[in-house]
C-alpha cells in the first residue's frame, strides 16, 4: 500500500494525517470489506469507529483539526439506511453548519468531507479515501504556497 505515496518513484509525498469517523454499521464495515478485498488506497487516513454518524459532535471535528489533523472525513450509512433509522439525517444538518463556519476558523473547506458508504461498498470506500486525500493535499499545498 505504501507504494501510493510515491509519485512515479521520484519524490516522496508528505504523509497526511486524516481522521475518518466511520459509523459502526455501514462505513466501518465498508472499509473492512475494502481491506478483505485487498483494495488499495492511501494509508493517510486514521479510522475512528463511532456507533452512528449521528454521534458526531462538531467539537470532535474541530478538535481533530486543531490538534494537527490535516483533514477530517465523516462517513455514515446512506440516507434512509441508518441502523438507527435517522441518525445520519440529523448529522447532515449539523455538519452543514459546521462546514459553513470552518472558514472563520481559518480552515480550508476542502479539509472537511462527508460521504455515505454502505457495508457492501468497499470499492467506493477506496475511491472516497483517494479523493479526500487528494483534496486535503491540494489544500495543504495551497496553504504552503500562500504562506510563502
Amino acid at each position: 500500500m505504501s507504494r501510493s505515496h510515491f509519485d512515479s518513484g521520484e519524490k516522496v509525498k508528505k504523509k497526511l494525517k486524516i481522521i475518518g469517523f466511520l459509523c459502526n454499521w455501514c462505513s466501518y464495515a465498508g472499509a473492512d470489506l475494502a481491506g478483505t478485498s485487498r483494495l488499495q488506497y492511501p494509508a493517510d487516513i486514521r479510522i475512528i469507529r463511532v456507533p452512528c454518524s449521528g454521534r458526531m459532535n462538531p467539537l470532535l471535528v474541530l478538535k481533530c483539526l486543531q490538534e494537527g489533523a490535516d483533514g477530517v472525513l465523516v462517513s455514515g450509512c446512506h440516507p434512509g439506511d441508518c441502523h438507527y433509522q435517522e441518525g445520519n439525517y440529523y448529522v447532515r444538518r449539523r455538519m452543514l453548519i459546521l462546514k459553513n463556519l470552518l472558514e472563520y476558523f481559518g480552515i480550508d473547506k476542502r479539509r472537511f468531507h462527508m460521504s455515505w458508504v454502505s457495508a457492501s461498498e468497499g470499492a467506493k470506500w477506496a475511491d472516497v479515501v483517494k479523493k479526500v486525500v487528494e483534496d486535503v493535499r491540494d489544500a495543504c499545498e495551497e496553504e504552503v504556497k500562500t504562506a510563502g
Partner: peptide, 19 residues
C-alpha cells in the same frame, strides 16, 4: 428546531465525495 428535525430529501450536496 432545525437540528431536531430533518427532511428525507434534502442536502444532497453535503456528500461531497462520491464515486
Amino acid at each position: 428546531l432545525p437540528v431536531a428535525t430533518f427532511k428525507e430529501d434534502e442536502l444532497k450536496e453535503i456528500e461531497d465525495v462520491k464515486e
